[in-house]
Design a protein around this nucleic acid. Sequence first.
DNA 1: GCAAATTTGTTCGTATGTATT
DNA 2: CAATACATACGAACAAATTTG
Lengths: 277, 277
Amino acid sequence: MAADPMYRQIAEDLRSKIEAGELPRGTQLPTEIELRDQYNASRNTVRDAIKWLITRGLVETRPGQGTFVVEKITPFVSTLTGDPETGFGGGEDDIYDLEVKATRREPTASVPRVEIQQVNDATAPELQLGQGSPVVSRHQRRFIDGTPWSLQTSFYPMRYVMDGAARLTDPSDISQGTVSYLRETLGIDQAGWRDMIVVRAPNQVETAFFKLPDDGRVPVVETRRTTFDSRGKPVRLTVSVYPADRNQFAVNVGKVPDEIVAPGSGEDSPSADNSST
Amino acid sequence: MAADPMYRQIAEDLRSKIEAGELPRGTQLPTEIELRDQYNASRNTVRDAIKWLITRGLVETRPGQGTFVVEKITPFVSTLTGDPETGFGGGEDDIYDLEVKATRREPTASVPRVEIQQVNDATAPELQLGQGSPVVSRHQRRFIDGTPWSLQTSFYPMRYVMDGAARLTDPSDISQGTVSYLRETLGIDQAGWRDMIVVRAPNQVETAFFKLPDDGRVPVVETRRTTFDSRGKPVRLTVSVYPADRNQFAVNVGKVPDEIVAPGSGEDSPSADNSST
DNA sequence: GCAAATTTGTTCGTATGTATT
DNA sequence: CAATACATACGAACAAATTTG
């Protein structure tokens, strides 16, 4: 009882039992009352230990049922790169390439929700627009095999609509893809893009849509894709949000083989802990 | 008291005050005793509210001092892509390109720690090695302006050393870079690489090195870079771990302008919350 | 340098509410 | 409806870290 607080000791003990396979995935832990007796602590202390395990994503509690070791999720893998000449985005509108280990799963998307907005303070510089400029936003919810996969919003300068790209405001899929639509109507070519990848806590909308635990311990990955024309001017901004607990990303540079090897994540760092700087 | 639990109401109230600027970054919140009186709740309930804010990274507590609104961190931005022909990795050994908004900061790295290990179960398939094959691991701690930036470990098949690349086991920097060293000694060319990006909770070593809060609420980003030769065979695997609270990543595809625009993250999704599927 | 005051951290006990079986 | 199990809330006491006098 000298070094660590009791709830940490209990938590570490349970953690080691989980990682040693003594408590396999999906099994139920002893109830809080049973743990209280086992560890000779109070129920509140046991609950502190469980809270610590929840934060690390090791267990989950279900009211009226018990505490369970979480099942491992087979992640979705999204490839952020693509062939800038041929494929260039895969042909689908705003949909990233997708490859999934073992089974090939099918992504589906909701009908776009289109809005005219004043450009956000955060996105204005990325689109090189003045504060408050009007933009068209096209928002979609995307699923894989029915489970929520990502939220995606693309922003286009309103000027494109004025200049003739009226279908940008159509609240339906632009089947040919907005890329080729902009090229054909306005002669805007797409020379490349940059993805900015940020990890952050989910907001309320994201927590609800992805059915994440409402204590914000599961982060989301936000990719902000700015597409440029050949003169280096930004054409659009696509913001996609993915829950980090079921998504991974791949980036290819140069010549690489096709198959994606299951990334085993986890404990690769040399076992010994570092001490000096 | 019907809808939300009291600790959530207190937390949301404090959150709105923080986001409205009423409680600026860095300022101290009222003490738990003061909050108890303000909200007419018990101290434990106030502490539950503070815990909720901590999980979301909005505040931090300092024992003996108080609770404070967290300061915003200017993030490091690492570019995962590069020119596959000319630059190809930037010339430094295993160091990614780095660009930082406004000021250009200098990355430094510790002397490599070299170990001969049996290949990990997770990394064996990525390097296409049999279970338990010997590998050389080269581990470095990397800093920017003195603050811990990333932990990086590269794995090479031990066979390379047998075949003549003895310096791979040198516990010092290979100044010319391992890429050109392998090309000159063994004729191994580097045709491309793939980065797998995973977000997960930090382990004990990472928590200590990055000085992260020990409750694992700050995730880490793990990039697993597999480098391939022109025949599509893996040459090496570089695993880098970055704390998500001070790092962002950029991926360039095709032709894009040089300057990286400050990515403002956050609240871009259309304001209204989604309801139906 | 030490002691007191302040503030958060841990642990206990207890009671009541809510969700599930 | 009853039993079970987790969720919330209160009160209290002591420990540990930090600042202040």
